[in-house]
């Protein structure tokens, strides 16, 4: 069922804000993982503003849903969402990456409220998410675990160890996303180390699999609904995305995996985002 116009418009507003804040945070930080922070936006926004049962006033609430941002370099886009949710003051984003700041490129759960797992080294998050999902089942709790991976990250063997375990344990309370922006640092994932047939790999590992446009809230929402209906398998949602989405000069440009923005680039980026949302 399609999301209502009201909800869609609210989500789009949050996505617009998140893209702008990711850019601004990168400026305060002196640089950032622009491409991946912009490709993951719709996944994070839909989860945090429509699905996840969390209490920013009580970040350690036992019954909360968990999210493991396995592609930890998305931190510069994730932190603004946590700030907007009320875990901490948005003003704090201004010290992102500064010496002794609680915020580095890859968020630390012991320093940033709302972060469920410290990530950054790729290939670790799905195993942690499997442990969280097993924990929920053991505790007979119905909180859900979400995990967002990068596609290049799926070159890591440990992802497939975890994939095997998640289906072996029939973790239907685990929903994973692959932010399939098709780019890693050195270029195109398929050219560097091909993942295709990607969805078949997940299928053969015993997962419920879905492939959607990762910038389309309705498609993502349908996929999450599908995941909730499944009772004996973990679900992976391959979200086809565009690295750098929303900033015209960054889209699908590999060097924007990580970059610094001067005042001119910042203005161009914010203008591009505003235009994409009809705000210019």
């Amino acid at each position: 069922m399609a999301l209502s116009e009201e909800i869609l418009s609210a989500l789009n507003e949050k996505a617009w804000k998140n893209r702008r804040m990711a850019i601004k945070t990168m400026v305060w930080a002196g640089g950032g993982h622009a491409g991946g922070a912009l490709s993951q936006v719709e996944i994070l926004v839909l989860l945090y503003y429509h699905y996840m049962n969390v209490d920013p006033q009580n970040p350690d609430w036992e019954d909360r849903d968990r999210l493991v941002l396995s592609k930890g370099h998305g931190g510069v886009g994730y932190a603004p969402i946590l700030a907007d949710k009320g875990y901490f003051d948005e003003e704090q984003l201004k010290i992102f990456n500064h010496t002794h700041s609680p915020f580095g490129m890859h968020l630390d759960r012991l320093k940033v409220p709302g972060v469920d797992a410290s990530t950054g080294s790729l290939g670790h998050g799905l195993s942690i998410a499997v442990g969280l999902a097993l924990g929920a089942r053991l505790k007979k709790k119905d909180w859900r675990t979400y995990c967002i991976m990068g596609d290049g990250e799926c070159n890591e063997g440990s992802i497939w160890e975890a994939a095997m375990a998640a289906s072996h344990y029939k973790l239907s309370n685990l929903t994973a996303f692959v932010d399939r922006n098709r780019m890693c640092i050195d270029g195109e994932v398929e050219k560097i180390m091909a993942l295709e047939p990607f969805i078949d790999k997940w299928k053969s590992f015993g997962w419920n699999t879905l492939e959607v446009d990762g910038h389309d809230f309705n498609q993502l929402d349908d996929a999450i609904q599908n995941a909730f209906q499944n009772t004996d398998k973990p679900t992976v949602i391959i979200a086809n995305t565009i690295k750098g989405k929303g900033v015209d000069y960054m889209e699908n440009v590999a060097p924007w995996h990580y970059g610094g923005l001067d005042a001119e680039n910042e203005e161009k980026a914010l203008n591009s985002i505003d235009r994409a949302y009809g705000k210019a």
């Binding site: 290939g123 097993l134 929920a136 063997g157 440990s158 975890a162 375990a165």
Partner: peptide
């Protein structure tokens, strides 16, 4: 939990279970 011959996953899952309390 016997996770099979997969030690990276072993310790990752252990971390997740610890995070779950």
């Amino acid at each position: 939990f016997n996770v099979g011959i997969a030690e990276q996953n072993l310790f990752g899952i252990g971390s997740g279970l610890a995070l779950a309390g």
